[in-house]
């Protein structure tokens, strides 16, 4: 199948996904389950990675800013900008594409090969709407919160790295993160996050839903899902940056 056919099939899938849920109470139940599976269970890895990434960015900036004419508060400023503009929304989304994308693709793919999706269809249930819509809503609702948390923890990680290494003073770092604060950058990051969240929920769902074969194919679909989700995030990141900041 060529790429154009896949893209067409993906949009046809979305048309089925965005139908009115057949029973709101069941939808609500699924939504809470997905918030837990896709959101809350990703909290740990986001906390861990963002804290250390922030620390590394601060240390590397400190090591590279050895010119006495460049003020030390640049470290805090650079860490804040890097975390808000790129590391939190894009880097964390790539991490989530790996963790959540493979989960979505393999869980839906397994349901496909074990005929659980057929069982839903036979009952008269719109399986795409039932399985994918709660995932999209959960991701759109929860990922911005995760990314905001990642921004905060990244900046905090940088601060803590300064205390541990002694490469810069806390006062300089705090002054740096307060300097030239632009709320639009947060908005830009959240817009990106919402779009990436949609991509993370739908591309793996597409790969899982249309899988054919057995467990080997589910594994392959899962790998493909992560690769394609990451590729689409990177491409969208480029265009969105150009559109929103250019």
């Amino acid at each position: 199948m060529n790429y154009i056919e896949h893209i067409g099939k993906y949009f046809i899938m979305l048309k089925q996904v965005f139908k009115k849920p057949q029973k709101w109470s069941v939808f609500k139940e699924m939504l809470f389950r997905e918030i837990e599976d896709l959101g809350l269970k990703s909290l740990g890895i986001i906390v861990f990675i963002s804290f250390f990434v922030g620390g590394v960015v601060a240390i590397q900036t400190a090591l590279n800013v050895d010119n006495p004419f460049i003020p030390k508060y640049t470290i805090g400023f650079a860490t804040k900008r890097s975390m808000i503009l790129e590391f939190a929304p894009t880097f964390m989304s790539i991490i989530l594409a790996g963790k959540v994308g493979s989960y979505i693709s393999s869980s839906i793919g397994t349901m496909r090969v074990t005929e659980q999706i057929d069982a839903l269809e036979v009952m008269g249930i719109n399986s795409l709407n039932y399985l994918v819509l709660p995932k999209i809503i959960a991701a759109l609702f929860f990922y911005p919160l995760l990314i905001l948390l990642a921004m905060f923890l990244g900046i905090f990680g940088g601060y803590y790295a300064g205390i541990l290494t002694g490469l810069f003073y806390s006062e300089d770092y705090i002054y740096g993160i307060q300097l030239d604060f632009n709320p639009y950058f947060i908005r830009y990051a959240l817009i990106k996050t919402l779009i990436f969240a949609f991509v993370i929920a739908t591309i793996p769902a597409y790969h899982g839903y249309y899988v054919k074969g057995g467990s080997l194919e589910v594994g392959r679909a899962s790998t493909q899902a992560v690769v394609w989700t990451s590729v689409v995030i990177i491409l969208l990141n480029y265009f969105l940056t150009q559109m929103l900041l250019g």
């Binding site: 349901m111 074990t114 005929e115 659980q116 057929d118 069982a119 036979v122």
Partner: peptide, 9 residues
């Protein structure tokens, strides 16, 4: 429908 493998969730 009773599926071959049961197809239980």
């Amino acid at each position: 429908m009773v599926f071959q493998g049961g197809a239980l969730y």
